[in-house]
Computed example of a mutant assay.
Amino acid sequence: MSNPLARRGFLVGGAVIGAGALVTACTSNEPAAQPSAAAAPSNAPAAGSGNDTPGEKVVIGFSAPAADHGWIAAIAKNAEAAAKQYTDVEFKPVEPTNDINAQISAVESLIAAKVSALVILPNDGQQLNQIARRASDAGIPVVNLDRVFPDKLSYRTWIGGDNYGMGVAAGHYIGKRLKDKGVADPVILEIQGIATLPLTQDRSKGFADALKTYGFSVTAQQDAQFTVESGTEVAGNLLQAHKKIDAIWNHDDDQGIGVLAAIKEAGRNEFFMVGGAGSANAMRDIQAGTGVLEATVTYSPTMASSAVRLARLIAQGKGMSDLVENEVPQSITLASETITKENVAEYLPLGFES
Score class of each variant (00 low, 15 high):
1 M>S: 14
2 S>M: 01
3 N>P: 00
13 G>R: 02
22 L>C: 05
32 A>I: 11
34 Q>N: 11
54 P>R: 12
58 V>L: 04
63 S>C: 05
64 A>H: 04
66 A>E: 15
66 A>K: 09
68 D>I: 13
73 A>W: 02
84 K>I: 05
92 K>S: 13
93 P>R: 02
95 E>K: 15
96 P>Y: 01
99 D>I: 14
106 A>M: 05
113 A>T: 03
122 P>A: 10
124 D>G: 10
127 Q>P: 04
128 L>M: 14
128 L>P: 06
137 D>C: 00
144 N>R: 02
146 D>V: 07
146 D>P: 00
147 R>A: 07
153 L>W: 02
153 L>C: 01
158 W>I: 03
160 G>C: 00
172 H>I: 12
180 D>K: 11
182 G>Q: 07
189 L>C: 13
190 E>N: 12
196 T>S: 15
221 Q>A: 10
225 Q>Y: 13
245 I>V: 15
260 L>V: 09
261 A>H: 02
271 F>T: 08
277 A>R: 03
288 A>W: 11
289 G>C: 07
292 V>L: 01
293 L>V: 14
297 V>C: 13
297 V>W: 03
298 T>N: 06
302 T>Q: 11
311 A>V: 01
319 G>Y: 09
325 E>N: 13
327 E>G: 04
328 V>T: 08
332 I>V: 11
334 L>K: 06
334 L>G: 12
343 N>K: 10
343 N>E: 01
347 Y>G: 05
